[in-house]
Design a protein around this nucleic acid. Sequence first.
DNA 1: TCCCTTGCGTTCGATTTTCGAACTCAGCTA
DNA 2: TAGCTGAGTTCGAAAATCGAACGCAAGGGA
Lengths: 148, 148
Amino acid sequence: MPYSSFASMPCTLSRPAALLGERWTLLLLRQIFLGTRRFEDFQATMDISRSVLTDRLNVLLQENVLKRVPYHEDGRTRHEYRLTEKGRDLYPVLMALRTWGEKWMAPDEEESFHLHHRDCGGGVRAKVECTGCGVELTARDVQVTARE
Amino acid sequence: MPYSSFASMPCTLSRPAALLGERWTLLLLRQIFLGTRRFEDFQATMDISRSVLTDRLNVLLQENVLKRVPYHEDGRTRHEYRLTEKGRDLYPVLMALRTWGEKWMAPDEEESFHLHHRDCGGGVRAKVECTGCGVELTARDVQVTARE
DNA sequence: TCCCTTGCGTTCGATTTTCGAACTCAGCTA
DNA sequence: TAGCTGAGTTCGAAAATCGAACGCAAGGGA
């Protein structure tokens, strides 16, 4: 059972965990959510090797997390990498990481960027809630039931 | 700027992303949240190589995500790996992955395990909300402001 | 036309990680 | 005494990553 076989396990947690758990992939998504869209810009800001960057972008294209969109510059047609709806839906994952990072890795740190709600200016926080009663949940509030 | 240097970047998203973005780490955390606690059980259920398992467990111990807790079996003292409070607080990250996996990777799949709120039996869902007005947020609702 | 630049990769040899099988070691148990 | 078990450690082979050079297509300028 190599690492890659988790990508086809019948588990809706394993598969995303195996996909985003490859080296560079989470950092790449962070960069994308911060607005980076072009190969050269990923390469420059992350200092990832070009061959690995090519590979990770291709995996995310194949998974339909990213799409290539043509654009014009200096009269030339080029392509940039943009999030699909599926990709944009990863926002809670990134925000959960950040919420955790703020609490546990540097409570008093000046963040390298600030996030706020456009409408009211409030902060941003990830949480887990019950789809039944709407209350916020922690790991202890949740019962795990294995199948078969 | 090697991969490891993201672990010390002044960004509350980069550091968690670099930590959990190492191969096997997210899958290891999944297994821990599902109740696995011993070296042999991780090795058997994930089929990870023993040396990498040792390394990943040590990183999570060092980061204070896990702690080693002694227990007794057959009159012998052994140790098991358990989540610290910091580790338990990663629950929203895992739940965000699962919420995404359910929506986008297999909407109609029989899950390998089921989760429900102990108190009301409801389902579990990760989301992002505004700390000001409490409304649910998507990436589009959030303004990013870079620092200096 | 010829040469230069740009963005986006590809190639390739060297270095790191990961793999898997065997080995170690301590503390029971027979 | 010999064997078993959980928890690692070691080590040579295989895979992933690195960084530097190369390829290439589409302009632009002379």
